[in-house]
Design a protein around this nucleic acid. Structure first.
Lengths: 116, 116, 116, 116
DNA sequence: GTGGTCTAGACCACT
DNA sequence: GTGGTCTAGACCACC
C-alpha cells in the first residue's frame, strides 16, 4: 500500500483483495482475514480495516457471518459484473483523458507502444 | 465543469485551459482571462479562480505580470513536456489497472473496441 | 511573525519551519503540528495554515497522510538541496546588488565589518 | 527590465537610474529623460513612468522644473546617503538570511567563494 | 483594472 | 481529528 498516495487506503486494499479474487488466489466462499488481521498485515488503522469490509459487503464482494467472519462472495457473476464495470470505467476514462490531450482512438495502439 | 465530481474544480478548469492550449485555441503568449472573468465564466469563486492561475504558473503553463494580467506561456516546449508527461502517466496507469484485472497488453485493442 | 511585512505570512512561517528543520529541532519524519494547531500557535487563519503545508509539500519539505497529519520529509537530502539552492540565490542576489552600488567582491569583508 | 519578476517595475527602473547615477553615467544636475521618453525606452506604461519620477523626487534623487523637465539631484550627499542606506539594508538582510540557514558571519567569505 | 494575500467559516472524505 | 476544497468578501500594491 502506498500511504503517501492520494488514493484512499481503503480503496487500495479493496483493489488488492479484488485483484486477488479475480486471479483466483482467493476463491469464492473463502474466509477473508478478520478485520484485525487485515489491520496488522496491511499496517492500517483498525477503523480503516473495518471500513474495507463494510464497503466490500456493500458492493456484494463479501458477506459476513456474525461471530464467524467475513467471506468472499460465492457468486462468481458478482465478480464478473465488477470486472466489467471497472473495465468500462477504466477504458472510458482512458479515452476521454487521451482525447483531452488531442489524441484520437485510432492513435491508441501506437501511443501505447510508444509510452508504455 | 462538474461541481459534484471528486476532481477539484480548480483542476478541472486547469485541464480545460491546458486542452485549449494544446488545441491551439489559446496560443503562446495570449492573455488569459483575468481571474475575475474566469470566476464569472466558470461560475466559481474568485478565490478559486486565483488558485487556478497560481497553480498553472507553478506548472510553467502561464506567467503573470502584476497589474496587467496572466498570459499563456510563450514556450511551446513546456506544453509538449506536459503533454508527454501526462501521456506517460495516463498510459502507465491504464496498463497497470488493466493488469490488476487480469488483462494483457495484447488484449487492449479488443477491449477498447468492446468497452468504449 | 511580522504581520506588517511585505513578505507573506505563509512564507514567513515556512521559513521558520524550514530553519527549525535545518537546525535539527524538527527531525526527518516528525509529525508537524496539524494545520489547526498551526493556526492557533502562529495566530493565523486556518486557511493560511493549510496553505503553508500545501506549499511545503510542493517543495518536498513535507508529506501528508490523509486523516493522519503532515510530516517532515524523511529525505534529509531534500533539505540539503533547498539549503544549497537558497544559499546560491542569497549570495547571488547579494553580490549583484552590491555591484549595482559600485562595490567589488573584494570589498565585501570590509563592508560587512562596517555595516553589519 | 524583467517584466516577469516579482519586483515592481518602477523599482527596477529606479534601481537602474540610481545605479547609473552612482557610476557617474548620470551626473548631478543632468536632465533626465521625460517620463514619455522613459515609457518608450523602458517599454513601460506611461503611468508607471510617471510614478518613477514621483518616487525618485520623494526620495530626493531628482527634482522637477515645471515645463522644463526632471533633473538628477545636484547634491551628491543625497546619493551617498542612499548608497549607505541600501548597503546597510542589503548587508543586514544578507546576514539575517544566512543566519536563518544556520550560517555564521565567520563563514561568509568561504561561502561567497563557494557559491558565487 | 490586475493579481496576491488574508480572514472567516463551511463541507467533505479519510483515519 | 486531519487535510483538501470551496465560498464570501476584504485589503493591498501594481500598472
Amino acid at each position: 500500500m502506498d500511504f503517501k498516495s492520494n488514493v484512499p487506503i481503503y480503496l487500495q486494499v479493496i483493489a488488492d483483495l479484488k485483484a486477488r479474487m479475480l486471479k483466483g488466489e482467493i476463491r469464492p466462499g473463502d474466509k477473508l482475514p478478520s478485520s484485525r488481521e487485515l489491520a496488522v498485515t496491511y499496517e492500517i488503522n483498525p477503523n480503516t480495516a473495518a471500513r474495507i469490509y463494510t464497503e466490500m459487503e456493500r458492493q456484494g464482494l463479501s458477506y459476513t457471518r456474525r461471530g464467524i467472519g467475513t467471506f468472499a462472495t460465492e457468486d462468481p457473476s458478482v465478480l464478473e459484473y465488477h470486472r466489467n464495470l471497472e473495465l468500462k470505467r477504466i477504458i472510458g476514462e482512458f479515452i476521454s483523458e487521451l482525447e483531452s490531450l488531442g489524441c484520437r482512438i485510432e492513435d491508441i495502439p501506437g501511443l501505447i507502444e510508444e509510452y508504455k
